[in-house]
Amino acid sequence: MSRDYQQFPDDDNGNVLWQMAEDGDDLTVAHEIEYSIAFKNQETAEKCALFLLNEEQKISLFQDEETDEWFITIYVYMEPDYSDIVDLEEWFTKIGTEYNGEYDGWGCMAYVYDDEDEDLDTEQPA
């Protein structure tokens, strides 16, 4: 299979999506993609979490015990399409900045099936 740089540009997002496709993941099927925003303190993380909930986003909020940072994970059920991922990254970056947070990337479970259709889940971070 030859890489289509229109569909899989040569950057982090394109490389992860290309690797998922190369591994046999069906990118035309919706996945639950997890986007993360990091915060230095609980108060700003909670304010951002309330904003995202008001935007009808499915989220989780937790504190990393090692770094004491707070993280919001936003769960978006979507087909892993490059332009849609980039658009959401821009939106979450803007929101993170407005609440003194920092966008921290995305990831999702890749569903790869071998010849016997056995599920071989692997995590694909970006």
Rank of each mutant, 00 (worst) to 15 (best):
M20Q: 02
K58Q: 14
A38M: 14
E46F: 14
F51W: 11
Y5F: 15
E43C: 10
R3S: 03
E34Y: 06
D4K: 06
Q124K: 13
A45Y: 01
M109T: 12
L53Q: 12
K47E: 13
M109S: 13
F92Q: 01
E66F: 08
E46L: 09
G14D: 02
I95E: 01
E79L: 08
E55C: 04
D4W: 06
Y103C: 10
S2K: 11
L61D: 02
I37C: 07
S36L: 12
S36G: 11
T122G: 11
Q7R: 14
A21M: 04
M78H: 02
W18C: 04
S60T: 13
S2G: 14
G96E: 00
I33N: 00
P80S: 02
G101A: 06
L88T: 02
A21I: 02
E32A: 07
R3Y: 03
Q19A: 14
V112T: 04
D117C: 10
W106I: 05
I37L: 11
E89G: 06
I33G: 00
V29I: 13
L27H: 05
Y99W: 09
F8I: 01
E123G: 07
F51E: 07
W91C: 13
N100A: 12
F71H: 08
S36T: 12
E123F: 13
E116L: 10
K40G: 15
N100P: 03
G105V: 01
L52W: 04
T73F: 02
C108T: 01
Q124R: 10
D115M: 06
E89R: 05
E22N: 14
D26Q: 06
M1A: 15
M78T: 03
D23P: 07
N100Y: 15
L88H: 03
E56Y: 07
H31F: 08
N15G: 06
T44I: 08
Y113S: 11
V112N: 03
K40Y: 15
Q57R: 10
D4I: 04
E123S: 09
I72T: 03
E98C: 12
G14E: 01
E55F: 01
Y103M: 08
W91V: 14
E34N: 06
D64R: 10
Q7C: 07
